[in-house]
Simulated scan of single mutants.
Amino acid sequence: MQIIGRPWTSWALYTFGAVGIFIACSGVAEFVLEARDAALLMAGQTFATVGRARIRYWLAGTESHAAQVVILPGISSGIEQVDDLQRALSAKVPTLAYDRAGYGFSENSTAHNAEEQAEELAALLHVLKVETPVVLVAYSASGPIARVFASRYPERVAAMYLLEPTIPESRQAMPWLHGPRRVIVRSVLRDLLASSLGYMRLTERLRNWRGPASPVERRLEAILVRRPHSWAVAQEWYALEESWMQTLAAALPSAVPLHVVTSNNEFSAKFAKLYAELAARSSRGQLVELKYIVEHSRITKPGPNFDAIVSGVEELALAADIPNRRALP
């Protein structure tokens, strides 16, 4: 029995050794390719040092009396997710978008739950010398961050425009829903492992060997396959339940204009009442229903509803009428 068992033992050791070498080589190759992406794609990009974090941001727009519009991307993407929206808004109002919570090409962020990310935003605004009230535009999972920021810094918020925001009240209204960690843990761990071993990068390249044509799409593709980005997503997801509790405890300033935008699809219909109740918390709240198409990596396709979103944000920013705005670089 011992003689028969030895070949199998040796085979198992060789197999584990080969797998270990493959994983190590895949990890090293992915690390090298991520460094190459950063070197090639970050030329001309702007970064701010906030504590130990290095945050990528983009300021765009012209000098005006409009409030600064701050756009918070949703989960699993960077500022490329809101590129079309920021470009459209910057024609009339000053705008800021940034890779929050270590997303995209930001580095060393320790902000993962809603309160930590609200503080990260406050620190970034201070570093960029944006001291006047801002219009917060939040999409999906960044909605709770905007709500916590407005609760902590009501004097720094001119208005809020929430695009189909994640709404923690859904758990109270529908207790049969699983907790957020249980819902997403498998997919998050799968993406983290796939990005670390280069699998996501390989599948993207096999899908389109030449890669995207535009610089924005190339950066977006690089973000979605980056291990540091997937790790940041995993940490935010892990802190999501804590973020929900913080959001529920945050009191929205009742006098701040608040527009809650929903799309008339089956998913949003489940939360229609909660969205309406959220808008009603402000004496100047509105529930806006639009039929727009949400994509994985971009908020919505250009068209009439996209134009309606741009007009709605511009209206809030221009209504703020903030004097003595500094010129944007």
Rank of each mutant, 00 (worst) to 15 (best):
W58Q: 11
R219W: 00
V185I: 12
L124V: 01
R186F: 10
D37H: 12
G17S: 04
S283C: 13
I21P: 11
A320L: 00
V32C: 13
F16D: 09
L189F: 09
E80I: 00
A251T: 15
L13C: 12
I71L: 07
R56I: 06
W8F: 06
P175M: 05
P212W: 06
L72F: 04
P253C: 03
R281C: 09
G285S: 01
W231R: 15
I4E: 09
S297N: 11
C25V: 13
E119Q: 11
V148Q: 01
R298G: 08
T300Q: 10
A101Y: 05
R56L: 02
G74M: 01
Q172S: 14
A111Y: 00
V225M: 08
E277A: 08
P7E: 00
L136G: 01
V288T: 07
A173I: 08
V183L: 14
L189D: 10
N305Q: 15
R87H: 08
R56D: 06
A158M: 06
V28R: 11
P257F: 04
R181A: 08
T262C: 13
E289M: 13
Q286G: 04
R326K: 12
E34S: 05
I55D: 02
A18S: 09
P165T: 00
V19E: 06
V157N: 03
P257M: 05
E242M: 12
K129C: 09
S76G: 08
L13W: 15
L85T: 00
Y238H: 12
P7D: 03
A122P: 04
A280V: 00
G20L: 03
A12Y: 09
